[in-house]
Simulated scan of single mutants.
Amino acid sequence: MGSLPLSQDRLPSDLDTLTVDDVARRLRVSPNRVRTLIRDHHLLAVSRGGQPAIPAVFFDDLGIVKHFNGLVEVLLDGGYSRDEVMTWMFTVQDDLGMHPADALHTHSAREVIRRAQAQAF
Rank of each mutant, 00 (worst) to 15 (best):
G97M: 12
L104I: 03
Y80C: 07
L11T: 06
T19N: 00
D77S: 15
R25E: 15
P31G: 06
F58G: 04
M98C: 03
V65W: 06
V46N: 03
Q93T: 12
H99Q: 09
I54R: 04
A45F: 06
R25S: 13
D22Y: 02
A116Y: 10
V65P: 10
G79W: 01
V23L: 09
A116M: 13
L4I: 04
F58K: 02
G63A: 07
L6T: 09
G50P: 09
G97A: 05
A103V: 00
L71Q: 03
R110N: 14
S7E: 05
A101E: 03
H99W: 14
R26V: 01
A118W: 11
L18F: 05
G2T: 04
L71M: 10
G70Y: 11
A103C: 03
T106W: 01
F90Y: 14
N32M: 14
L11A: 01
D40T: 15
T17R: 01
H67L: 12
F59M: 02
P100G: 00
L96W: 13
D83N: 07
P12M: 06
G78D: 08
D95V: 12
S3M: 06
S13M: 13
H99S: 08
M89C: 14
T87F: 13
A109E: 08
L11C: 03
S30F: 11
I113D: 08
S108K: 04
R39L: 08
F90T: 15
L75N: 08
H67Q: 13
R39G: 13
V20T: 13
L75M: 12
M98P: 05
R35T: 02
G49A: 05
R115M: 13
G49E: 10
I54Y: 00
I64F: 04
Q117L: 14
T87R: 15
V65L: 12
G70A: 12
T19R: 12
N69M: 14
P5I: 00
V46Q: 12
L96T: 07
K66Y: 11
D60S: 05
P5G: 06
F121T: 13
F68V: 01
L71V: 10
A103S: 04
F59W: 04
A56P: 04
A116Q: 06
H107S: 13
E111V: 03
M1I: 02
F90R: 07
M1W: 06
G70D: 06
V20C: 01
G63E: 09
R35M: 07
T91Q: 09
H99N: 13
D14P: 01
A116G: 15
R39F: 00
M98R: 01
D102F: 08
P5V: 00
V112P: 09
Q119L: 11
W88M: 02
H99R: 14
Y80Q: 02
I64H: 01
S108I: 03
T19H: 02
Q119M: 05
D16A: 08
L96C: 07
H107F: 10
G50H: 07
L76P: 06
V65T: 11
I64T: 08
W88V: 06
L43K: 03
M89N: 00
